[in-house]
Amino acid sequence: MSIEIISSGLQTTIQDLGRKGWRHMGVPESGGADKPSLKLANFLLNKALNSPVLECTLTGPSLKFFRSYSLVITGADMNPKINNKEIKMNKVIDVKPNDILSLDNCSKGCRAYIALSEDILAEDFLGSVSTYLPAKLGGINGLALTEGTLIETKSCESEVFSLTNKDFKLNNPFQNEWKLRVIEGPEYDFVKNASKEKIFSSIFSVSNDSNRMGNRLIGEGIELSNHDQMVSCPMSIGTIQCPKNGSPIILGCDSQTLGGYPRVLQIAAVDLHLIGQLRPNDNIFFEKISIDHAREEFKKQNSLSAF
């Protein structure tokens, strides 16, 4: 016995960086919805960036430890506490047996990541332990963690270092209003001209009906000139689909591989991780950029990243 879930939080799952190369068999990538935050947690512990972590959603869990660990919490700030004493985000924290870590609600962002100095043991499916709830794959029995669940860990080879505690500057992007950069999707021209202008001048809000599969948006309806049902087409994480009702859906990391609604916009790769931090009622506005500009921005972001 290594860790016990005292309370589950809203939806706490085990995630790594996801499954690659199986979309042709209908298997989505999954993995952390905000991968840079997941990687940062592992990076600060000097662990392999793909190590499994706990992904917490809106309200975090409470955990009781039965061994000593170092841990790091990144992503949305859920006011983490050890034995009721506040601890810092994005810092290596040491815990000892019988310590209780409790996370609360967050007011900005949606997901937090808890990485541990030991490796979390979970079920491998196609090279990843990421939990995919719709088909109950990965994680522990493919499920979100519930009260009383026991998580086993084993020591890992890498030596945990706390050097990174010194001066790691974090660009905190968490807010309740987001600018998301987008490029034109393959069916962008299905959108009526009047609607094209409105998309980029109006504000959308994130619906309560949002999850790891997708964020549904509420706002000025997008009118399409072509209402024909499309034959099923490949989709991608960050594809903005527009069904007949005009309410766009941003496809998330657990989204289906194929779909039949027009792909009107695509979130630029440079902002793709932000969709994992959208919370219900957040406001969104879209800025359209060219695909070349999007590539430059992504390369810039990549070269600035410490990991």
């Binding site: 979309r23 042709h24 087409c233 490949p234």
Partner: peptide, 18 residues
Amino acid sequence: WIEVVAAEESIAVKYNDI
């Protein structure tokens, strides 16, 4: 290729653009 996904009338090919 990172992913090659066939639909009924198209194929998506994902590559490492870095």
